[in-house]
């Protein structure tokens, strides 16, 4: 890089190497290293303009503006599941089948218990009847 291009870079982009074009930054920095005093002379005016520009205050966003923008943002989308969710239907079917099995088993158990109780009652009733008959038929 020659002095003319270095001066043109500084006039356009200022004195801060971070604002110089990436493609020319290394060459410009090498130019500075080679002739620091000469480079500083060329950068002097650019440093002044940079300092003036940096005096411009940085505008701060108000909390009200920030909140209004956030409130205008997209809302969380509801969890939409497909109508024919195979997993969901399978789970529901399995639960229904379980309920049926439990119902059938419980029902069968109850019927069995009622039958057994009835039989026991009949046997006891029969036995009581025999005893009574025996007592009536026996002479005093």
């Amino acid at each position: 890089m020659d002095a003319e291009r270095f001066e043109a870079l500084a006039a356009a982009y200022g004195a801060e190497p971070r604002r110089w074009p990436v493609a020319e930054r290394a060459a410009a920095q090498a130019f500075m290293e080679a002739d620091r005093a000469g480079a500083e002379r060329l950068l002097f005016e650019s440093r002044l303009v940079d300092a003036m520009l940096d005096a411009s205050p940085v505008p701060a966003a108000s909390v009200g503006l920030r909140d209004a923008i956030i409130a205008s943002g997209p809302q969380p989308r509801p969890d939409r599941r497909p109508l024919f969710d195979i997993g969901r239907w399978a789970a529901a079917g399995a639960a229904l089948a379980c309920a049926c099995v439990v119902g059938i088993v419980a029902g069968a158990g109850a019927v069995q218990r009622i039958t057994a109780d009835g039989q026991a009652d009949a046997i006891i009733a029969d036995a009581d009847g025999v005893v009574v008959l025996d007592e009536q038929e026996m002479p005093g």
């Binding site: 356009a12 982009y13 200022g14 650019s46 002044l48 303009v49 003036m52």
Partner: peptide, 9 residues
């Protein structure tokens, strides 16, 4: 950029 900075200066 150059013209703008020169005007500012």
């Amino acid at each position: 950029l150059s013209r703008g900075r020169r005007s500012l200066r």
